[in-house]
């Protein structure tokens, strides 16, 4: 296998007396979909937050394409090409769809209007936003200028996913992307995940939905008690194996060996 694109070694994060990450390792290879599963409180969220810059680990090292990175905030991770869809979506409800998609990386008008008067290029941003949402098949939205709070839960999810897919250049992280969606929207998001993969971008997928995980993932990272318990091939293991491993009902062979 090729060199991993994103790795973590010995990540540790403590909140007071609670250890969320305990000397945790992580590897993501180019062009793959890696699912991360684990029981509630296993430390999945903290792992993901460390990878996307929302949390700074106490110890350990993260490397992106072989270079050590230290993200102080999500902006730095984004600039490095890691794009994240958060479970709470991280959208501003009162702002429009286009505003939200370009939050923090707005396009300014060309020429003096943009450079001196800092004027935003609304038309360009709305066009990109509309294109991305159409690509996603999520254009049941009537008006691209409407506030995000007027959208349904599935549509909001679509906006968040479209934002990540549009801007991610190295890695896309998706935290429970189908949790709030109906059957049809879930299917679209899964198709989108495979589309993104086809474009050569690796994806980290955090999900509790075993059928979805086993359908799209190339490898499954099982998280337990703050560290990586094992990585399994979904074609060689069953869903009940995975559930047994992550809940501690069964110990995987690699670990026993």
């Amino acid at each position: 296998m090729a060199e991993p694109i994103l790795t973590a070694r010995g990540l540790t994060k403590r909140y007071g007396r609670v250890t969320a990450l305990d000397n945790c390792d992580f590897d993501l290879y180019p062009g793959e979909i890696l699912a991360v599963i684990g029981d509630n409180g296993a430390g999945k969220s903290t792992l993901i937050k460390a990878l996307c810059g929302a949390v700074t680990p106490d110890e350990g090292e993260i490397t992106l394409e072989g270079k050590t990175v230290n993200f102080a905030n999500p902006m730095q991770a984004r600039d490095a090409g890691i794009e994240t869809v958060y479970q709470n979506l991280a959208l501003s409800p009162a702002l429009s769809i286009a505003d939200n998609m370009f939050m923090g990386r707005e396009i300014r008008k060309p020429g003096i209007m943009g450079s001196v008067f800092r004027m935003l290029d609304r038309a360009a941003m709305e066009k990109v936003a509309r294109d991305k949402l159409t690509e996603l098949g999520l254009m049941t939205i009537q008006n691209i200028g409407q506030a995000v709070e007027t959208l349904s839960g599935g549509q909001r999810q679509g906006v968040a996913v479209a934002r990540a897919a549009a801007f991610g250049s190295k890695v896309v992280i998706m935290d429970e992307p189908t949790a709030a969606l109906g059957v049809k929207e879930s299917r679209r998001v899964l198709e989108l995940i495979l589309d993104v993969k086809k474009r050569g971008l690796p994806i980290i997928l955090i999900s509790h939905n075993m059928p979805h995980v086993f359908e799209v993932a190339d490898r499954v990272h099982i998280h337990r008690l703050g560290k990586r318990l094992c990585v399994i091939d979904p074609k060689k293991h069953t869903m009940s194996d995975a559930v047994a491993y992550m809940t501690g009902a069964k110990v995987p062979e690699e670990v026993m060996a």
Binding site: M75, L89, L91, D99, M103, G104, R118
Partner: peptide
């Protein structure tokens, strides 16, 4: 209404955590 700083003021007031996660300092 027409500059990034202005939209960020709205975003910060709307939902501070979301603004932070979507990359606003």
């Amino acid at each position: 209404n027409n500059t990034a700083f202005g939209r960020h003021i709205y975003a910060v007031g709307d939902d501070m955590d979301a603004a932070e996660l979507s990359g606003i300092r």
